[in-house]
């Protein structure tokens, strides 16, 4: 089985978000970048599947050289090889088109992404990529089994869960319960240094959106404190003052 896992290079979850250049650019100074947590789960499940059934796991990232440490980490976790498409990831559409342009000739049986990246939260690459490749996609999966070329999955839906199946090839996006994230071991870290990381030049693609500026949410006013002995007053305040219950 030939699996492709799409990974995003994102700011660590503890990052305090600030902007530069008159609020038009994300301030990366002092920010630690990591593999997007949902993508790590996708990678872990891909490795579990190939360990059981044989095959390869390729990771792909659309990004500049600053993504390389995250890509090397994916190799250390166990990916067979890696592709970096050398372009600034402008938006999900652009990223999906770049990956589609690479993947269309590679005949992957399965393509996995995270549910969304924790920086831009669009959750679009899975659906866009599937459509561009003309194959099905399934969002937000919590389990994935493959047997005889058929994928059986459990996905989150509004207010519940759905068990469904689809013939490979397929694109699916990972939720929390899909797998346990893996920590690279020393052997993995050593072997990652010599595993292939191929840099592919970006396809000439026009962008169809532009982020003009950013803004931070207004700071909350002061918090109204209620003495613990009068805790029941809280309900009255929420009902009559805040009018939310």
């Amino acid at each position: 089985m030939k699996i492709l896992v799409c990974i995003s290079n994102v700011p660590d979850t503890t990052t305090k978000i600030t902007f530069t250049d008159n609020n038009t650019k994300f301030n990366t100074a002092g920010v630690q970048f990591i593999i997007n947590p949902y993508d790590e789960l996708a990678l872990a499940r891909a490795l579990e599947l190939t360990e059981k059934q044989g095959g390869t796991v390729t990771v792909v990232n659309v990004g500049l050289a600053d993504s390389d440490p995250s890509i090397r980490k994916a190799l250390a976790i166990g990916a067979t090889d890696a592709i970096r498409i050398n372009a600034e990831p402008i938006d999900a559409y652009f990223v999906a088109e770049q990956i589609a342009s690479y993947a269309k000739n590679e005949n992957f049986d399965l393509i996995l992404t995270g549910r969304e990246s924790i920086d831009y939260n669009s959750g679009q690459v899975c659906g866009l990529l599937a459509e561009m490749l003309g194959i099905p996609s399934v969002n937000a999966i919590n389990s994935l089994e493959i047997e005889n070329g058929i994928a059986t999955m459990m996905r989150d839906i509004d207010g519940g869960r759905e068990k469904l199946s689809a013939k490979l090839p397929l694109v699916a996006s990972a939720l929390q319960e899909l797998a346990e994230a893996r920590i690279p071991n020393m052997r993995g870290i050593m072997s990652a240094r010599t595993k292939p990381l191929t840099i592919v030049e970006a396809a000439g693609i026009e962008k169809n959106s532009a982020t003009i500026g950013f803004e931070l949410p207004a700071a909350k006013g002061s918090c109204k404190m209620i003495a613990p002995e009068n805790a029941e007053q809280l309900i009255e305040l929420l009902h009559n003052e805040a009018k939310v219950i």
Binding site: A96, S122, G123, D158, N208
Partner: peptide
């Protein structure tokens, strides 16, 4: 932007070559 909305929006966008913004 519900679960269903999230799975359908990018597909529609790709079919219509439309720019898409979520959230």
């Amino acid at each position: 932007n519900t679960y269903s909305g999230k799975s359908i929006a990018p597909k529609v966008a790709a079919k219509l070559k439309a720019g898409i913004v979520s959230g």
